[in-house]
């Protein structure tokens, strides 16, 4: 199986007042061609940093301290700015979280969609036609008329459709969706997920879908990557990971999903403790302090325990948790 994206031992550090904050530590993951891979984890686990690192659009105080990123077998971690600019939008594109802020408010939809095609030497009218066709494709009523509309004239769901149309416009190999449904209400969430599925089938791209909503990941994705405090703790097929998690963090995360609650509770379940200080991460297992399975051995760096490939978990007690 060919891989659209292969990330190996990627590390990113932010320079802060308190010292280097190790936002990503040796993150490895892969996105097979034509699959939808979900990344799940709580706020601050490094999901957004990972996207920034993939696109080389990290804030100024962040540095990639190591690792490799291969997009369709091309090493892009060390690619030139020129090459990266070619890749962005063309080979990999992004749908951002908040459609209210991810479109330029003073430029018409049509112009923004024509702009993306700046590499193609085709006429204005042809670009317009392609943009309208793409808008029609994402279920926009009156696509031709919408080209002259401005973002504020559209609803949130419509804007997210426009953002998806823009991201899919150039038929990228990899489409990154950064919590594209978080800012939308539940009915729209389902529509957008269905749309992403259709787009994936149609253009055959791989999708990297970032979310903290387990239900959405289960619904949409083929594979899931679980991140905690800047590390990948578990990866595997969605059913495998969600039905039989092998990492205590994944297990806890699923237990805490409010969607699983059958009756009223006074307080929602949560994982006791808080995220470790990433300027000075503890040695050994990163989840040790909050883990019910923790033993003395956890002071050592956990091995990568493979269960049913490609399902693996970074835990000394993976077999025990897996059950």
């Amino acid at each position: 199986m060919t891989k659209t994206l292969e990330v190996e031992r990627l590390s990113v550090t932010y320079a802060t007042r308190e010292g280097g904050l190790q936002a990503l530590r040796e993150v490895s993951l892969e996105v097979p061609a034509g699959q939808i891979v979900g990344i799940v984890g709580e706020s601050g686990c490094g999901k957004s940093t990972l996207i920034g690192a993939l696109l080389h659009l990290l804030p100024e105080n962040a540095t990639r301290t190591g690792g490799s990123i291969r997009l369709a077998d091309e090493e892009i971690a060390t690619a030139s700015p020129r090459r990266l600019r070619d890749l962005r939008g063309q080979d990999m594109s992004v749908v951002f979280q908040d459609p209210m802020t991810s479109l330029n408010p003073v430029i018409s939809i049509g112009r923004q969609m024509r702009d993306i095609q700046y590499r193609d030497r085709i006429g204005h009218a042809e670009k317009n036609d392609r943009a309208a066709a793409m808008l029609a494709r994402v279920g926009m009523p009156d696509p031709k008329g919408k080209l002259s509309a401005y973002p504020h004239e559209l609803s949130g769901g419509m804007r997210q459709r426009v953002a998806i149309a823009m991201a899919a416009m150039m038929m990228p190999k990899l489409l990154i969706a950064d919590e594209p449904t978080t800012a939308l209400d539940a009915t729209l969430e389902i529509q957008i997920i269905e749309l992403l599925k259709e787009i994936q089938k149609e253009i055959g791209c791989a999708i990297l879908f970032i979310s903290h909503h387990l239900g959405v990941i289960a619904e949409l994705c083929d594979r899931v990557v679980v991140m905690y405090a800047g590390e990948v703790v578990e990866e595997g097929a969605v059913e495998e990971v969600f039905l039989r998690p092998a990492h205590p963090y994944t297990q806890k995360l699923i237990e805490c999903d409010p969607g699983r609650l059958k009756r009223k509770v006074a307080s929602l379940p949560s994982i006791p403790g808080s995220l470790p200080d990433l300027t000075n991460p503890p040695a050994g297992c990163i989840f040790r302090a909050r883990c019910p399975y923790a033993t003395d051995i956890c002071i050592e760096r956990p091995p990568r325990v493979t269960l049913t490939p490609p399902h693996w978990a970074a835990c000394h007690h993976a077999q025990e948790v897996h059950g």
Partner: peptide, 26 residues
């Protein structure tokens, strides 16, 4: 630092394009 500028960069827009095309009109 607006998200749409990040989005434009993620779509491969050049520095000049971002300055004159996206920031200036705003």
């Amino acid at each position: 630092n607006a998200e749409f500028i990040l989005a434009e960069r993620a779509m491969g827009a050049s520095f000049g394009r971002i300055v004159f095309h996206h920031i200036l009109p705003n």
